[in-house]
Design a protein around this nucleic acid. Sequence first.
DNA 1: ATTGACTTTAAACGCCCGTTTGATAGAATC
DNA 2: GATTCTATCAAACGGGCGTTTAAAGTCAAT
Lengths: 244, 244
Amino acid sequence: MAGDSTRARILETAGEVFAERGFEAATIRDICEAAEVNLAAVNYYFGGKEALYEQALQRAHLRDVRDENPHVWDHGTPPEEKLRLSIRQLLAQLLSMSDDPWEARLMVREIMNPTPAGKRMLRDRFSKMFQELQETLDEILPPDMPDHRRHQIGFSIIGQCALYRSLAKVIPLMIDEAELQHYYGVEELAAHIAQVSLAALGLAPPLIGRASGQAAEKAKGGRPIVTHTEHRRILPSLPRKGTP
Amino acid sequence: MAGDSTRARILETAGEVFAERGFEAATIRDICEAAEVNLAAVNYYFGGKEALYEQALQRAHLRDVRDENPHVWDHGTPPEEKLRLSIRQLLAQLLSMSDDPWEARLMVREIMNPTPAGKRMLRDRFSKMFQELQETLDEILPPDMPDHRRHQIGFSIIGQCALYRSLAKVIPLMIDEAELQHYYGVEELAAHIAQVSLAALGLAPPLIGRASGQAAEKAKGGRPIVTHTEHRRILPSLPRKGTP
DNA sequence: ATTGACTTTAAACGCCCGTTTGATAGAATC
DNA sequence: GATTCTATCAAACGGGCGTTTAAAGTCAAT
């Protein structure tokens, strides 16, 4: 009776646990306990831990494809603005946190720490992310630029974003709490990365323009750019005890 | 008799294995077998796996500090050139491969995947890397630029470099073999990242200058910049079967 | 009420891990 | 030469893991 429900419950819980701890660190004992299901249920319904993980990945892949709004630009949005929005979306996805659905977090984890099981899906998903960025870039880059330069420029943008995920544990060791609070939200970082990238491309003033490095910031000086969406911390803050 | 020698042999082998597989995946059985030492020797000499790992980390830290040439610039080297060299060194370190000493590789692994045991050392080491880059940047950035902008610019450079490490498994899925071979060596990537960074700062022409995106490349068009040091592959190449 | 397929359960299996033990042999100390 | 310390060894311990098993429970169809 509850048979179908238990299967669903296992998958749901497993997705959560896998997204949080990764395939290896997650144990089916933890999953079954959290799902309030007998230990043997995973093998009964899925045939094993790895098969369960593949199911979770596949579901994450499907939901990710379904939910994603494929960038409906306002008609006539200038390419630089599209790039800004692409960067913001990419960064937000990479920095998805525990209040985001596990499907998104599992996807990012699979990109940053690939497992053999997810290789095929990884190729699909990541190449899609990459090509979307490249399409936006292609409206900016001159048509005679060779492919390898387009790719490297794309990687320079992705790299700037991915850093705040891959070094999320390390950055708080260097930056003090107050600075983290004020300048390391998704919006601030996205604005910075877009500014750097556009400046490099020649579509925005260079970072060290005339008087101050803030020359390229649009409006009232000094304050960071804060947009309409909510402000949230993206990096864990570790205890600071002064530099030893 | 061979007592001192076995201790050294264990540490050496353990460093190699830890650097290659990480703390968790490495087993003391593997280490002892590779070191041709009895299984109990690790506990006899070091007191446990974690203590052995800490010893390996500490040794990597010390040797790293000792070996590192603290950037003896030619007198009067322009700041842009210093930045280029800093980027190249950072990238080379992040992409250290199996023919590099395990100390360097273990250090990078600890930065990218921190363990609780290495937290203190991580703070020392990474903050040193970061501050060295910052010092180079400080010669370029205007003195009135606030700290948080300096840091973000530093992270933008580090991010571009770290990408080729953190996504080393994924990039070959997007880029075909030939392009990897020609354009993803340390020198080529360092040149690209320096060009992007300097262009963003306004110290080099933007990537899309006048006619072609190659405007900023110094000399003969089309060909990638290849310097004096040896050319080597930095990313694993996975089988390509055409885009499915 | 009985059947029979589906589901749930507690217990155990087999494996790998880090660690411990107790014996053995050699060197050092007296 | 007897004793103590040091180093090595094979073997086992205890725990966590994924997986398996066999019995018990559930429920609609007969």
